[in-house]
Nucleic acid binder design. Sequence first.
DNA 1: TTGAAAGCGCTAACAT
DNA 2: ATGTTAGCGCTTTCAA
Lengths: 345, 345
Amino acid sequence: MTETQATDPSAPRRRSPTAADVAERAGVSISTVSKALSGKGAVRHETRERIVEAARELRYQTNAVAASLLAGRTNTVGVITSDRFGRLTAPVLLGATEALAQEGVALLLCDGRGDRIREQFFVDSFLQRRVDGILVTGAGIFGRESVGRDLSSPTVYAMAWSDDPHDVSVVPDDAAGTEAAVRHLLATGRRRLAFVSGRWDDASRVRLNRTTDVLEGQGHSLVHPPLLGQWTEGWGRQAAQQLIRSGIEFDGVVCGNDQIARGVAESLRDAGIDVPHQVGVVGFDNWDVMVDACRPPLTSVDLGLYDVGQIAARLLLDAMGGQQLEGGVRRTPCHLVPRESTATP
Amino acid sequence: MTETQATDPSAPRRRSPTAADVAERAGVSISTVSKALSGKGAVRHETRERIVEAARELRYQTNAVAASLLAGRTNTVGVITSDRFGRLTAPVLLGATEALAQEGVALLLCDGRGDRIREQFFVDSFLQRRVDGILVTGAGIFGRESVGRDLSSPTVYAMAWSDDPHDVSVVPDDAAGTEAAVRHLLATGRRRLAFVSGRWDDASRVRLNRTTDVLEGQGHSLVHPPLLGQWTEGWGRQAAQQLIRSGIEFDGVVCGNDQIARGVAESLRDAGIDVPHQVGVVGFDNWDVMVDACRPPLTSVDLGLYDVGQIAARLLLDAMGGQQLEGGVRRTPCHLVPRESTATP
DNA sequence: TTGAAAGCGCTAACAT
DNA sequence: ATGTTAGCGCTTTCAA
């Protein structure tokens, strides 16, 4: 390397150039600089050239803080998560960032760990920072406490809905997803279904209820009482063994998530029961790591969490634009992704 | 509900109260309000009481934007990720948020998807927003391009290191982690080791090199040429079958990550080879979902990514405080978590 | 102990 | 087409 060190590394960090610096260098006033660079005022072509050139030389960048103070808008939304940026939150966050980035809005992130005190602290810090909106996500698909009515920034809940019906929530329509899964099992010729899920929460409840509703609508019912345990592969395996030991015949299993489904499917396989030819298995989440690695690959309900994030963000943008949103829960579609675990017997 | 609606929902969002509002209500000047609430000036006790009361009544919150403009400090750091907030980034992010939150610093988040153009765009947006620092993470443990020398905000790289040695990077010492894994296999009596990893990148290279170094230091060597493929369970299974078919005897397998290790372990089990009694298997990442679900549970190298995030954040805080950091890569310790897959035969 | 005034860096209305 | 001026909401001298 032969280039000369441009700056003295021991020097204090130099302050960023201001519009005044650019103005001086271009020999114009500050407001002309503003007009030229924002493209909003009338500036002679030649003058603009000079200003742009000066700005480039100084590596000038508009100070967004000053602009925000003036505009009363920070182009920022605060996000509160509660599952430590886990697997379910990530796609929601991604969908939201994409939708917001398109409008030049950035995300302030923090994790409340599901602790109301922490959450309240972060909400306050967001309000002090004058975020234009707040997005709240949960650690799964279930109801959660509102972070507060009538905050000075509009708020939208994604994935987990607020228990205050005045709040705006966007959640995957997993009841409809469940229905698709059950109908798919029926369509592939299964009639004797079992149900295995994690702990007894909103998600388990919705999925179980819809499963039994659809079955009963067709004159069927679950062949074994619902098996509730944990959201893990290990529990899926245990549940499968319990089913086998019960001696009850079954030809399809609806599972609360992909981990459980994988546990069930692989445990059946180990027991010499062919999946999908003797038993069809369907999971929830369409989590690549699970559905692809499972033997056989798992049919699963995709919750469309990226869309949930995107739609929640768009609603928030509308609200930030002054639109009055109607409170309540909006449901976004889930879709079934068929794979080998439910192939026609 | 019998309570009256406090605000007219169709009214335009009311502006936040300012220090002037509080001053008026408390019958003092703005500067007294500032002193009273910041606790920095001398204010008569009774006056402070009045001011605090007025602030509470108005639900006044200091406008951080105005404070930032004045202080030349935003208490914000920008974070650029590149794996869509994936499994590896999450703990880094979490560690960073905790360390930063303690100092009242918030995180601005965006995902560059590993695209330099997008990254540059986000870096510029961060600089405009006058973040006090920038944190860059990668999608894994490998070298990456610098986002720029001499940015106006100090920058620290976490997990993936910058290819510019003037930049400050914090990465897990996976070479040392590898060494611990190999020594553990040797200590549990294995001598004939194989190596299976994902694609041929920095992580695979470091882990392979250290594996062979340690083996050779003990007078041993890999019994089969390294097997490189993908970072998936499927590849782990294929590799195990390849090993078995080769007819070469082996009693230990070092795997590039937990998915591969699980594929290897379960494939051996399916082939009637006992893990750990005939073959020991060790993985990397200590990813709960994999290590716990695997049969048998997997011994794995924990990369300590939470610490990586925390340490990177602390370095960044130091730099933000004006401290001059020495460029280069700092390595944080990994540690082996023994489980059944390497239990003494 | 309190208040008046300056100014952080910018934009927008108004004047030239 | 360009410049002058008045703030955005706050903190911080400096005077009273």
